[in-house]
Design a protein around this nucleic acid. Structure first.
Length: 488
RNA sequence: CGGGGCGUGGCGCAGUCUGGUAGCGCACCUGUUUUGGGUACAGGGGGUCGUGAGUUCGAAUCUCGCCGCCCCGACCA
């Protein structure tokens, strides 16, 4: 954010002089390769819109470059995940993408994983792999450094690129081979503590998705190859979802809202977990037709959903065989109780678009939008509109917002079409006609409703709209927060 | 991996059946014009037709191999 950008100068490649990073928020200087027509390879709406809005470029099947605006959204989602993990007391770290095969031979998964695992050999003929997940590595780290029950509870997570060599990648970033994912692992002394970690994750995930403008419903799921006693998947309802889901419609009325959560309070976390999981909501894997039939008929729903996260409690399933133990108070080694939890960060970009778009393009929720507001100058080169736009741009930037100023010498229709396509939630339209009576137009992308306001009032209103979103980011460690927002 | 389809300028496509040396729309550049929802006109730049071999006087077009991508299925965060 510009307030903390004082050290963040960048070299403007056109002017060859130092400017503030705000310069790149002008469309004439940004890199936003929008497409009027849809590349034929894209099938589902989020993939089409991401290509058309110049967010990604496919480099190979299921492998994408993230162009500046797509990258911005990806990083905004990542920042929200970090912020909510920090709030829940989880500790960030980073494990490598490449892993030695030996670690996986220990767990017997090197052979078990099959062709989905991308295997690589280095110059010394050592077997390596591009990690599809990190259980082995985190367990190695844990057992190398944690010996005492006094070091528990502990929850470590990282956000890193993973690779699964899917037979058939599809749906753009929703099912790529390379994907960006948050995965976390909790280590607890007792089953009860580990179940609290489970509940705590469920609650923090709910918050995370709500901040992204998504309703992700926790559904009882199948633990699959990871195994374990308890697992929930978080599903975003969307027609293009890959999973069939069944639920009680009342479940969609429950919101976390801005209630205060104490993540150390076992009873409170448990109560929230129970509140959100009491009603019937399951994926087809665990669907129970009899239980479903008990729901009042008018509330029975079947739909499709996109899986955007999953949490597991699996107790000592891994710690026991892999020797992840700590010494208890009595001096005896105890296998730790574990769980793991994932959020599909890159997949969320697609999922959010699936859940929020219309025929004209993307409609970003305020929490993840790449730019907070678009400024459209209807008559570039006109002294009045130019000055009004610059002033708006300055006022919004000063308030810590990132506007995208369309300063191209384009016609109104073209500018509107671009803004609609890229989906910024708010647009301020500045034209000579309105300026004559001292007003600009503030338009909501979602509703299409506009109101005429003085430039000052329009800026103020936009600043106010985003105030709650800024407040939510405050829990994130100040240093880290700064770095996340400045280098974009 | 089984089934289907497609590779022609940045994007969308025609041309392939019936071989004669590449075309349209959009985008891009120049000029005029226009300016509150993709203005109109004129001029212009850009393509080893995925790739290799073959048939032929001549191949985007016919034959064979290979590569890539998309869709359906099985699989998956």
């Amino acid at each position: 954010m510009p307030d903390c950008l004082c050290a963040g100068f960048v070299l403007d490649r056109r002017e060859h002089r130092l400017t503030t990073p705000g310069a790149v928020m002008r469309l004439t200087r940004y890199f936003l390769p929008v497409l009027k027509e849809t590349p034929s390879e894209a099938q589902i709406v989020s993939h089409r819109l991401m290509l058309r809005a110049g967010m990604i470029k496919q480099q190979a099947a299921g492998i994408y470059s993230w162009l500046p605006m797509g990258f911005k959204v990806l990083k905004r989602i990542e920042a929200i995940v970090h912020e909510e993990q920090a709030r829940a007391g989880h500790i960030p770290m980073l494990m490598p993408t490449l892993q030695p095969a030996d670690l996986w031979r220990e767990s017997d998964r090197y052979d078990a994983y099959g062709p989905e695992m991308l295997r690589i050999r280095d110059r010394h003929e050592r077997d390596m792999l591009y990690g599809p997940t990190n259980e082995e590595m985190i367990t190695d780290i844990f057992r190398s450094h944690v010996a005492s029950y006094k070091d528990l509870p502990l929850t470590l997570y990282h956000i890193q690129w993973k690779f699964r060599d899917e037979i058939r990648p599809r749906f753009g970033v929703m099912r790529g081979r390379e994907f960006y994912m948050k995965d976390g692992y909790n280590f607890d002394l007792t089953r009860e503590d580990a179940l609290h970690a489970y509940n705590r994750h469920l609650v923090s995930y709910l918050r995370t998705y709500e901040r992204m403008g998504l309703q992700a419903i926790p559904m009882r799921a199948d633990s699959g190859p990871i195994g374990g006693d308890d697992t929930h998947e978080f599903l975003v309802l969307a027609e293009t979802g890959e999973s069939e889901v069944f639920y009680d419609s009342a479940v969609t009325d429950i919101r976390l809202g801005d209630r205060e959560i104490d993540y150390d309070d076992h009873a409170q976390c448990r109560a929230v977990m129970e509140e959100f999981t009491a009603l019937y909501a399951r994926t087809d894997e665990t669907h129970d037709a009899e239980a479903f039939a008990q729901i009042p008929a008018e509330r029975q729903r079947s739909a499709r959903g996109i899986e955007v996260g999953q949490i597991f409690y699996f107790g000592t399933k891994y710690s026991e065989p892999m020797g992840a133990t700590v010494q208890g108070p009595d001096g005896k080694p105890v296998p730790v109780h574990m769980g793991s939890h994932g959020i599909g960060v890159s997949r969320l970009v697609g999922a959010i678009i699936e859940a929020s778009h219309d025929e004209r393009g993307i409609v970003w929720p305020e929490g993840v939008t790449p730019f907070h507001v678009g400024i459209v100058n209807l008559k570039q080169g006109d002294a009045g509109t130019d000055r009004a736009c610059e002033e708006l741009y300055g006022a919004l930037t000063k308030a810590g917002l990132e506007p995208l100023y369309d300063d191209r010498d384009e016609r109104a229709g073209g500018k509107f079409a671009t803004m609609d396509l890229i989906g910024l939630p708010w647009r301020i339209t500045v034209g000579p006609r309105g300026l004559k009576s001292g007003v600009v137009e503030l338009t909501s992308r979602r509703t299409g409703e506009s109101e005429e306001l003085s430039p000052e009032a329009a800026a103020e209103k936009v600043i106010e709209i985003y105030a709650p979103h800024h407040r939510q980011a405050e829990h994130w460690e100040p240093m880290a927060k700064r770095s996340f927002h400045t280098w974009l």
